[in-house]
Each structure stands twice: as structure tokens, then as C-alpha cells.
Design a binder for these strands. Sequence first.
DNA 1: TAGATTGTTAATCGATTAACAATC
DNA 2: TAGATTGTTAATCGATTAACAATC
Lengths: 219, 219
Amino acid sequence: MQEKNISKSVIRRLPRYYRFLGELLKEGTEKISSRALSERMRLTASQIRQDLNCFGGFGQQGYGYNVKELREEIGAILHLGDKRRVIMIGAGNLGRAIALHIDFQRYGWELMAVFDRDDTLSGESIAGVKIYSTDALRAFCAGNRPDMAVLCIPREGAEEVVKTLTECGVTAFWNFSHYDIHADYPNAAVENVHLTDSLMILSYLMEESDEPEDDPVTT
Amino acid sequence: MQEKNISKSVIRRLPRYYRFLGELLKEGTEKISSRALSERMRLTASQIRQDLNCFGGFGQQGYGYNVKELREEIGAILHLGDKRRVIMIGAGNLGRAIALHIDFQRYGWELMAVFDRDDTLSGESIAGVKIYSTDALRAFCAGNRPDMAVLCIPREGAEEVVKTLTECGVTAFWNFSHYDIHADYPNAAVENVHLTDSLMILSYLMEESDEPEDDPVTT
DNA sequence: TAGATTGTTAATCGATTAACAATC
DNA sequence: TAGATTGTTAATCGATTAACAATC
């Protein structure tokens, strides 16, 4: 196992810690106690201490945590500085927006190429990155060994693309397609981002908030 | 409270059920047992039955669940058919992509307008929806009473926009900004979509999968 | 009826919170 | 030293899984 077999719940909170610590740093705050941070982030001080101690004792009794240091530690845990070779599949609206909107370079990652089935796009660029035909995918991977793929394609194409990319040595998938990449690929790292699911949850929550009502199902 | 005070974990799974049932329906499957569905979705049959029974007994002993019926029930729980008036704040890359990519109409929702601080965009359209200056926001809300806002703006502007929109009667926020909308607005429904957080989690998972190593922190 | 599969209660597991001794 | 705040153990809470009687 890695570190200590950290639970998924803890991991999912790390980027949020990283974000808040970044804000504090910007504000010029040097140190912060778990208590103060907990109030700001709306969780318990206990949880913060518990979470951080999965990775090591970053704090100091009687003082708290050094903001800059702690942020760097979390960045290291998330491997933010590591070199990463990223490709994108799908140059539609969503792909373009992600390519333009996400600052891969900020974490030392390089978006190397974008692929699309539509050959008429070949030669164009998004955010300074060339678009290629999907036909060129295998050859590109053989030569450039990308490790992460961002999938911005419809559900239909996804399964096959994942298979191909896995064969080509890609081990991480940031998946915006409607298809769930499941554990068929045991060594793959996967983040499924289902925007529609998120919107549906919001739809549910909307009703919940303005409806102090009784059971509408029992009819 | 609503129905039965359903836990957040259950709610978060509902859209996924809805999606898988949609696939089954497309394939022409009429009925499915919790067992068969569990294998497909990679969770336990127990959990499926437990989840569904939060809302009512949709199944039939010895038979299973009717796919079409169950899907409709879940759709109703999520209030997917309800009329919704949606506006978007921010006509940048991400806003444009969301406007073009998400099929609001499919669920009976109407994207009424997009607002942007950059007045030079006023008059343009995205996905057939007019762009207005943010200056026109209050007046628009007074006249059109939107209930949901999609926030595709930078961190800095978010807090104020949420405040304004809340005053204007908007109760639901689909938030793509780097700012966490927190419980200051007790009756607001919020879905924070932090794409960068998701990417960072993937970064962590990547290392975990190809690193059957010991503790790198203890140095 | 016999077989299948649900709805539901009970058992287990994991995650969060509380408490407090260690220590800066 | 006294005060503050961590790291860590123990208690609580919630969510998942297992089991099985009810029933189609």
C-alpha cells in the first residue's frame, strides 16, 4: 500500500484544504490553528487534525500550523509539482473549454495534444495545442508516452477509447463522458466528472429547501 | 422535513441510478433485479434496495423492478420534469461550454439569459440565449424571476453575485467558481463543482496506483 | 405450489466527533 | 511557568452489508 491506506473521504478533502491555505497565504496569514481553519472551512477542528495526521505531524503544539509549509506538504501529497504528460480526447465545446479553462501548466503538467474524430479539425489549435485525428492516437502515444487523458467525448465512444489508451500506457483518466469507467482496469486512476448528475442533485436539493412538506410519495 | 430526511449519500447516487436505468431502457430491458443492477453498477444489491426503499417500495417480490417505471419514479424524486428558470453568470470559455453542452430543455428547464461583466458581449448569443450586461441583472430578475443560477465566474466576483442573486430570489446555485458558497444562505440549494479539486484528486490517485511503496513522508 | 426477489431489521464497518494527555 | 493547541485514543454516529421473513 501507499502511505497508510488513506481513506477516500480524506483524499477528497485535500484539494479543499490546499485551496483555503492558498487563500490564507494570499492574505498574508502565517500560521493558523485547526480551530480557526475549521471555522473558515465549516468543518470540525477534530476532523482537520485527524485528516492531516494521516500524513504526518505538520503542526506544532501551542502554535498551530504554518500556512505556507502546510500548503506545500499537501501539494506534495497530491503530487502537484510532478511532471505530467496530458492529452485530451474530444475537441467539442466541453473539450475546448476545459483546455482553455484549466491551467495545467500551473502544476507542471503539459497538455500535449488534442484528438478528435472529426478530421476537418486536424491542424487547428486550442490554447496553443494542436488537434490531431483520432487515427493518429496510437502512434502519438508510442512516441510521446502521455500518462493522463482528459475525455470530453460522448458516451458511445468512451469505452473503446479507454481500452485503446490503456493499451498505450495511459494510466489516468479525467472523464467527462457519460460513461462510467469502472474497475476493469485495476491500475487505472479515474475521476468521473458527471456534470449532469451534479445538476440533478441540485434539482433535488431545490425542492428540499423550499418544501417543508410531508411525504408526497405515499399516495 | 421532506420525504424522510434522506441522507446525502443516497441522494448522490440517484442520478447514477437514473442514468443506468436509461441505458437499460434503451437496450430494451423491461425488468431488472437488484442483483443484476448491482453487478452492472458495481455496488451491492443490498444498497440498491436500501436506497430505493427510502422513497417507497418500487419493486415486486419474486420479480424485481420495472425499468421504465423505476426510472420515472427516480426522475420524479429528482424533480426532473419541473419547469425551471435558469440564468447563467459568466460568458467565458466555461460558461459558453456549459450553455452549449448541457441540455437544460431535456428536463423542462429554460436557460433564459447569460450575464457578463464585459459589456462588449451584450447582444451576442450563446446557444440561442442572449447575453446581457451584469448591470441588467437585478432588473431582469425582477421581471423574470429565475430560480437557478449557473456561476461560471472567477472566485473574486462570486461572493457578491451570490448575495445579489439571493436578494433577487434565486434559490439554487450551480457553482463552477473557485469560491465555496457556504451555508450563509440557509435556504439556498448549492452544488459546488470544483473541477480543479477533481483534477488534484486524480493526481493523487495516479501516484497511488503505480506506487506500491512504503511511507515517503517519514523522513 | 416452489422459486425468486423484495422490503426491512439486525450486524458490521467506517468515518466523524469528543476528549485529553503530550508538548511547544 | 502558564496557555495554547496539537497528536492520538476512545466514543459516537452514520452508512453499508448481511440476513431473512414476507410475498409475488
